[in-house]
């Protein structure tokens, strides 16, 4: 009888502590959930970059969004300006017709492919289209092939 009581009390006691510790654990998990924001104060992933007529032939850097907009004749394309190695912003070299990273020397060709390391992945190309008001519209959510372009008769 006495032993039973003791062991039951022990069991309940341990159960209590177990629940207490799991509550603490749950609160910690909830706290981590709190750290993950539900709304973002970031620039939209889909944005307008101006009218096609304002882009002369060639490669144009959009500093605010870290992309390049390319124009060949009436074809427009958009490519990331962020080096796939460690995220530095690259520069376009008109001489070599290549993107060069100032941080660790990666070089990418016109198609965005890696010519020289340390980067291993090619540059992502983004969907580009013409919005209703006639401006070029880039969507960073959509990765496309390097040949994807929008044709605008300017």
């Amino acid at each position: 009888m006495f032993i039973d009581q003791t062991s039951r009390r022990n069991f309940i006691n341990r159960l209590g502590w177990g629940v207490f510790l799991s509550t603490i654990g749950g609160i910690m998990v909830a706290s981590i959930r709190l750290l993950a924001p539900n709304v973002l104060y970031e620039l939209p992933k889909e944005f307008k970059v101006g009218y096609p007529k304002d882009y002369p032939e060639g490669v144009h850097f959009i500093p605010a969004r870290r992309i390049f907009v390319l124009r060949e004749n009436n074809r427009f394309r958009a490519v990331s300006a962020v080096c796939t190695h460690l995220g530095c912003t690259m520069r376009w070299s008109e001489q070599d017709l290549a993107w060069k990273c100032p941080c660790h020397g990666s070089v990418f060709n016109e198609k965005g492919g890696v010519i020289k390391g340390p980067a291993t992945r090619p540059l992502p190309w983004y969907d580009i289209s013409v919005s209703l008001d006639g401006q070029l519209l880039v969507d960073l959510n959509k990765d496309v092939s390097p040949d994807h372009s929008v044709v605008v008769n300017v």
Partner: peptide
Amino acid sequence: IFGPLVLVVILLFAGQIWKE
């Protein structure tokens, strides 16, 4: 009261999760 307290607290906490 240790046991009941633990129970009530975890219930309230669970309620908060449900609400979230």
